[in-house]
Design a protein around this nucleic acid. Structure first.
Length: 567
RNA sequence: GGCCCCAUCGUCUAGUGGCCUAGGACACCGGCCUUUCACGCCGGUAACACGGGUUCGAGUCCCGUUGGGGUCACCA
């Protein structure tokens, strides 16, 4: 693991500010505070309340959570709502729900509190303002009276001249006199960081190793607006320190932000956390960063499309009107609503940028916690592969008992209005029989709804697959065989899988036909489908009365649709 | 464009100088099983971006090239 002290030393050497201004040499109010060795691992995930939980965000949160759990530390949820106006709780709820569903629990944060409350940045403003003031007092930040237009003009000019932009500091005010002068002009101020312009910011990243940035390429970022509100970088650094975060584990897009955060932290006299920048999660089949706004593009990926349509179908069966914005495989809700297993999602996600060895693929959550390490995080971005997630889901589903599956599926039947809530006597038993019969065909909990088409439908309302119907029941011969077998069945008393199996075999032997000549017609007549669980399971579950009824109805329809004369 | 990061089968990855005629998984293709579908089993196709070094020896180290990506706000 990376030593914070090493980090600090490294940075000190390269800190380019003149001696008197150096945060280490200067007599800042915090100089006397001896740097603590952070024995406890504390990690955080800091979502912005956007209304949904993004799959890439979950991956970042998972790695943070895993690290904290493994080290016996704490995982903190902090809400980065510095720029949000209203409806924060409404926009936050889906995120919290998503984490709860996945089993990623937080030791401190919204709804659970903690020793460093509040955990909302919108409620910590004074702390940022105090930090900004300290930065100004110590010469690491300044009042800036420029207008956005003036700065943009400088930026455009730099771009035009093909040189890196560096703010002129023409509207920088460091004395009361200068401030008065600008204010007399009717100007308002923001607070900018007085970034170093020489040397380099070097630090060791726990996943990327040594990285280095030229200070001169950094800009004098705004940390406080004219209305007194503070910006992300300041807030983030102050909070990470206040909340005693030991490891800042976040996605790679934050890597270029790190120098300015290090500048803020060191200027404030803070001990630096260990930084770990994870590769971001990329789009299906590309290396672009995954984003929720490019669904159209992802839908062109066949695997992604199939998974999406499968989920849409389940949602539709529950009468949910989902828009692509809120319901697609990039958003965690999608998986919860369609009945994926949290353990499968986590198992897939943990392998997106991390591996234990050359073979191990299946992990329980406990095993992930046991084996996870920052050292084995990869550096290259990993594409989101919906098909592979599906494969994990398949495997995790297979590990469930019949009881577990049935219990997980019952709510889906209830939401679809097919089973009363609470379920009547015998419903769970029936479901369990169906689950057994369906076996591995049920990939997600919501898949039960597809089988409800015939297991949970009135006999006279069952839909029949047209193609299969035309293929299997259009000839007088096939109709005759089915009719004969139906009459044969009406005499059967022992309506069990084993006995029905025997009956049919005896029937085909006697009739001198093959089982394939009849079984498809039977399946179609009682389920309306060409595919499904074992035929005898279907018959047994449906019961004699329903089976005969459906066979009669289907036969009647066949005879009407394909009268003998038409041949 | 500046800065930064990255680079092994289609995808996720193993590989930290010889154990690599590059391993595993998903997907794909064949075959088996089978009343359908699904599962399962067996087998197969498929990768070290390129060029220079260093070394007895390089996927592994160094440099360059190319390619890809991230980031450059009074967003987070």
């Amino acid at each position: 693991m990376l030593e914070a002290s090493k980090l600090r030393d490294r940075s000190r050497h390269s800190f380019p500010i003149r001696g008197a201004e150096s945060p280490i040499a200067a007599g800042t109010p915090y100089q006397g505070e001896s740097p603590k060795i952070m024995a406890t691992v504390r990690t955080r995930f800091a979502p912005s309340p956007t209304g949904y939980l993004h799959i890439g965000g979950v991956r970042s949160a998972l790695f943070n959570w895993l690290l904290a759990r493994q080290q016996g530390g704490q995982f903190v949820l902090r809400i980065d709502d510095t720029d949000q106006q209203r409806n924060v709780s409404e926009a936050l709820q889906p995120i919290l729900d998503g984490f709860r569903w996945l089993g990623i629990d937080w030791d401190e944060g919204p709804e659970v509190g903690g020793p460093y409350e509040p955990y909302y940045q919108s409620q910590r403003l004074e702390k940022y303002q105090a930090a900004a003031q300290r930065l100004i007092d110590d010469g690491f930040a300044y009042y800036d009276y420029s207008t956005p237009e003036e700065v943009n003009a400088e930026r455009d000019q730099a771009t035009f001249e093909k040189r890196p932009f560096q703010y002129s500091r023409n509207w920088m005010a460091t004395t009361p006199q200068e401030r008065a002068k600008f204010e007399a002009e009717g100007r308002s101020f923001v607070v900018r960081l007085k970034m170093p312009r020489e040397g380099a910011c070097e630090f060791t990243d726990a996943v990327r190793g040594d990285v280095s940035f030229e200070w001169s390429k950094e800009n004098d970022h705004v940390i406080q607006r004219s209305d007194g509100s503070c910006l992300y970088h300041l807030a983030s650094v102050v909070d990470d320190y206040d909340l005693k975060i030991s490891h800042v584990v976040r996605a790679e897009e934050h890597l270029p932000n790190t120098p300015r955060q290090i500048f803020i932290a060191q200027s404030l006299g803070y001990e630096l956390p260990t930084y770990a920048h994870l590769p971001y999660v990329a789009e299906p089949g590309s290396k672009n960063k995954l984003s929720k706004r490019k669904l159209e593009k992802y839908l062109k990926n066949p695997d992604f499309k199939r998974i999406n349509e499968h989920g849409q179908d389940i949602a539709a069966r529950m009468g949910l009107e989902m828009t692509a914005e809120t319901f697609n495989p990039v958003i965690v809700d999608f998986y919860e609503l369609t009945g994926y297993l949290p353990s499968a999602i986590l198992n897939y996600l943990v392998l997106l940028g991390w591996s234990l060895d050359d073979k191990t693929e299946d992990f329980t959550v406990d095993e992930m916690i046991k084996h996870f390490s920052l050292q084995r995080v990869t550096k290259a971005p990993a594409s989101f592969d919906a098909k592979k997630l599906w494969a994990f889901q398949d495997r995790h589903m297979q590990n469930l008992s019949v009881e577990q599956k049935a219990a997980g599926m019952m709510p889906f039947l209830q939401k679809a209005g097919l089973v009363a809530d609470p379920a009547a006597e015998g419903e769970m038993e029936k479901l369990q029989k169906i689950v057994v019969a369906c076996g591995d065909r049920l990939k997600v909990m919501g898949d039960i709804l597809a089988y409800a088409d015939y297991f949970y439908v009135d006999d006279d309302k069952m839909a029949i697959d047209e193609k299969g119907f035309n293929k299997r029941l259009s000839s007088p011969e096939s109709q005759a065989i089915l009719a004969t077998f139906r009459n044969h069945l009406s005499d059967v008393e022992d309506w069990t899988v084993e006995h029905l199996d025997k009956e049919m075999h005896a029937f085909v032997d006697e009739a001198g036909i093959k089982i394939g000549d009849i079984i498809h017609g039977v399946r179609l007549s009682v389920t309306g489908k060409t595919v499904g669980p074992g035929m005898f399971d279907c018959l047994a579950i449906l019961g004699k009365e329903s089976c005969l009824h459906r066979m009669d109805a289907t036969l009647k329809l066949a005879q009407e649709t394909f009268p003998p004369e038409s041949e």
